[in-house]
Design a protein around this nucleic acid. Structure first.
Lengths: 329, 329
DNA sequence: AACGGTTCATGAAACGTTTCATGAACATGA
DNA sequence: TCATGTTCATGAAACGTTTCATGAACCGTT
């Protein structure tokens, strides 16, 4: 008779079935077991309503089948998409997702990493803006969009190529004077390379260009002032604008419209990310699409295999251009 | 000397410090311990680089400090906000979030619940569209936006009141003929009450109204056909439109504009949710704002206390109206 | 000095699983 | 028939923590 206490255990099942504890374990784990033993165990499991309890295995084997995911939030649709596809990719491999939103708070990040280690996670995937973060060496760690060191694999899209592509596309669409805008100057991460690619293409095309990079918490009005300073007699003195993110592009388009500048007639605008309005509609700005699903898939497969082999230190995945009505294509 | 094998354990710390195992446990758990003992243990922890391992505690106490969260996706910004605030609320209580995106797939839901139980989670918070879901009785369970039974607490915003408010607001803004649109007819859940509230207000105000409810996977064109059928000589025969979600409202506004109907001059439109474009900007449609943060907070506190007391079976949280440029206020 | 009361260190037992050395049972080949 | 392999059930040990009964040490009171 099973103990009056909590749920029945493998031992209870073994007694009920008249077999050994180890046999029950094998049946539960689908290891080879004689037919009649298997049948007896399965009947006992049904009869007692036995439920597997993973805590025993975790203690014994240190295997939790859990990956921790660190990301600032899901309010930003790019992050939301990442979280989604990472969870899907993990689930397909029968792994669980332990979630942490940092809200850009360093302490929450550190606290969570400590907690994740306490919980014996199989690995950590992190998208962090904390430049000083010390990556633990003894745990599988993969970063997204930020390169730390050759021993920590970083997954990102081809930001340089994306910037290059944006400039070329604007040029091909007839623009002869370009501008780039971005917010967030303090941290040098992979997305910073969007500017580098843009500049490289401008130089290569021998086309004049402007750069405007605001500090992280700069007042929004500074962008407006920048635009105003480039307007003479109601005309903008550049005809192609590349923004670091779709969200910024969207905001700039509102400002431009407010000033009577037409998009795409007077100025063509390209953003970055490939974010759809409300997650389902057409692209609302012309954009460089990040391959979010592939980034997620790669991050997951990398973090799960990083203990096996020497892993690449930086993986750049190809981006794609998509017209969205803010360019003349 | 600690065993050559893995990380040092409490027992290693105890030996190093020359105290008993239980004493180390007390220090780690901040239970009262004599000053000198405490000091010795802390030194030993530092010296050995001891790291707490939660698997022992989980096995012994069945306490994982983990709550499972089941939600269709984070692509939908309303879900994304919920996930965010639920995680924040859990983290504030030192709980971890185990995440599952179902993508509206029943099997994934069931599989995840089984897994969550195996992992001894402290509770489950679920936003599900699976009407036939059988809620396990032996685990703390809280639902969002869908009522199952009196024994399963459900958290939602005041959907009826929101529908009522939308109709009243449209009336107060001068509308004298209203329409309601929604997608998803198969399931009767809390958000379905938006229509009920809307209808109740229309009856109360004695104002004529139309209802258009599409099946879950109906082609988008049916909405367009519905609108077309209400246009005579380039004029819409209703002047106030309430949509079940902001996303639908946004889509309808695009369609209306395409047909030369001006918003809000010719028809005023109110949505539901309070979703901001890109998560940061002003409301892009006039809307009934759901108190997402309060919903999250309430769901978390309910699921964590549901073993203590008898809990309410349905909690409705107040909504709020916000103008967003698609109404004349 | 004796006694009751309080505080707190001690260390063994228990949690539910996996793993592994052992040996039983049986099959194969000479 | 015996030697040799092969398969597979057995059950004890181990994983790292919490908990609890025990008793030592100390304090204040009579």
């Amino acid at each position: 008779m099973p103990k009056a206490k909590g749920h029945p255990t493998m031992l209870d099942v073994a007694r009920e079935a008249g077999v050994a504890l180890g046999t029950v374990s094998k049946v539960v784990n689908r290891q080879p077991v004689g037919e009649d033993y298997k049948r007896k165990v399965e009947q006992a499991i049904l009869k007692l309503g036995y439920q597997y309890n993973s805590s025993g295995r975790v203690l014994r084997t240190d295997r939790t089948d859990t990956v921790a995911l660190i990301i600032p939030n899901t309010i930003n649709p790019y992050f939301a998409k990442l979280v989604h596809y990472i969870n899907i990719a993990l689930e397909r491999r029968d792994k669980k997702t332990l979630l942490c939103f940092t809200d850009y708070d360093k302490n929450r990040e550190l606290e969570f990493i400590r907690m994740a280690r306490e919980n014996q996670v199989d690995g950590i995937i992190a998208l962090t803006y904390n430049a000083e973060l010390v990556i633990p060496e003894d745990i599988a760690f993969v970063t997204i969009d930020r390169f730390f060191s050759v021993s920590v694999p970083c997954i990102a899209s081809d930001n340089f190529g994306g910037g290059w592509l944006a400039a070329h596309r604007l040029y091909d669409l007839g623009c002869r004077r370009l501008a780039f805008m971005r917010i967030g100057s303090s941290l040098s991460n992979e997305p910073s390379k969007r500017k580098e690619g843009f500049v490289a293409a401008c130089v290569e095309l021998d086309v004049p260009f402007e750069l405007k990079i605001l500090e992280d918490n700069a007042p929004f009005g500074e962008f407006e002032a920048f635009l105003s300073s480039h307007i003479q007699n109601g005309r903008l003195d550049f005809d192609g604008l590349f923004c670091g993110t779709d969200m910024l592009a969207w905001q700039m388009i509102q400002v431009l419209k407010g000033k009577g500048i037409r998009v795409p007639e007077d100025v063509q605008v390209i953003g970055f990310d490939g974010i759809r309005m409300f997650g389902t509609l057409d692209y609302t700005v012309s954009t460089i699409i990040q391959p979010v699903q592939e980034i997620a898939e790669t991050a997951v497969s990398t973090v799960l295999s990083s203990h096996l082999s020497t892993v690449p230190s930086l993986i750049c995945l190809p981006v794609q251009y998509a017209a969205g009505g803010t360019t003349r294509d």
